Simulated assay, not measured.
Amino acid sequence: MSAISSSPVSLFAGRLQPLPPEGQTTGIFKQPVAMAQVGPEGLVGDAQGDRRVHGGPEKAVHYYPAEHYARLVAECPGLAEALVPGVLGENISATGLTEQNVCIGDVYALGECRLQVSQPRRPCWKISHRLEHPGLSRLVADLGLTGWYFRVLVEGEIQAGDALRRVECLAPGLTLARLWAASEAHRPALAELRALAAAPGLNGDWVRRLTERADWLAQHARG
């Protein structure tokens, strides 16, 4: 598979804040930063509100394609001013990389770091609350405009204006778009689930879910 890279990246980090209207603690409110030190759990100084579903080594760095914002604005024109990079809680945004050309387990160089694609980001209800638009989280999921998480293979410093460059593709053709489509399908192909579950670098929870679903489909097909 050919080498791909992003445009110069924007970086975002944030501290915990209350989320209106109920006041849940969240780290979705990010601010641009010029540089960041990246450790095993992401950008140093960046916070996540609910550590059961956000953060940790397998969700260390969240990337969201900047080109997705135009698509979301087309669907929700009233949010045109608000839908700009950083607002969905991502740590990195740029153009050139999307779920259509990024594969499971891809390894990228950014500054001193090496980052590996671990899993898609499942849109959280906090997106809808953050933008005061009921149904926005579901829309992001339905359109497959999810973004994804990186795990950190090599720690170090990154800077805004650097570019992500793919240095290794472990599962050519097994794109995040294919993974998301299979996960959302009512009755996905058994072979597709098996192939995706076997992709090097895929997060273990995703492997388990895909395998369990494939096993269920195989059992009921025999029945």
Rank of each mutant, 00 (worst) to 15 (best):
G96L: 13
P120C: 06
P188K: 05
H186L: 12
A195N: 05
R166F: 11
P40T: 11
L145Y: 15
R130D: 02
Y149N: 00
K30M: 02
Y108L: 14
L19G: 09
A160F: 06
L217H: 00
P172Y: 09
A198E: 13
L145T: 02
R209H: 15
A197G: 04
A221G: 07
A221L: 10
L170E: 13
Q159S: 15
G135F: 01
G23P: 05
A185V: 04
E99K: 08
R194L: 15
V154N: 07
A36T: 12
N203P: 03
K126S: 03
S183P: 01
D162C: 11
H186N: 08
Y63W: 13
L143T: 08
I4G: 01
S5K: 13
L193M: 11
P77L: 12
V33M: 10
V84I: 10
L217S: 01
E75R: 09
S6Y: 04
P200D: 14
V38G: 01
P134Y: 10
A218T: 14
E41C: 14
L131V: 03
C113D: 02
H54V: 15
G27C: 07
Q17C: 13
Y63K: 02
D106M: 05
A141I: 02
K59A: 14
L16R: 09
P85G: 09
L83H: 06
A163F: 08
D205A: 15
G111H: 01
L217C: 03
L11V: 06
A66T: 02
A197N: 02
E155V: 14
V107G: 11
L174C: 05
I28T: 09
L170F: 12
L164Y: 01
A185K: 09
A189K: 11
V73M: 07
E81H: 04
G204D: 08
L143W: 08
R130F: 12
G14A: 05
L145S: 06
P57S: 15
G223E: 12
T211S: 13
L193P: 00
H133N: 06
V107H: 01
K126F: 14
A181E: 14
S93G: 11
E192N: 03
Y69S: 04
R151A: 14
R114S: 10
A198I: 04
R165W: 09
K126H: 04
A66H: 09
V61P: 01
E168R: 15
D50T: 06
L83F: 09
G105F: 10
G204T: 12
A36V: 05
L131C: 06
A171I: 02
G14T: 10
A177W: 02
L19Y: 06
N203Q: 15
V9F: 03
Q48K: 15
G49D: 05
E157H: 03
E155Q: 15
L164K: 00
P32T: 05
R209N: 10
A109P: 01
M35H: 08
D215G: 04
V102G: 00
G201H: 03
S2V: 11
R178M: 07
L131K: 00
S118W: 06
L11P: 00
R209D: 10
V44W: 06
A177S: 07
L143G: 03
H220Y: 09
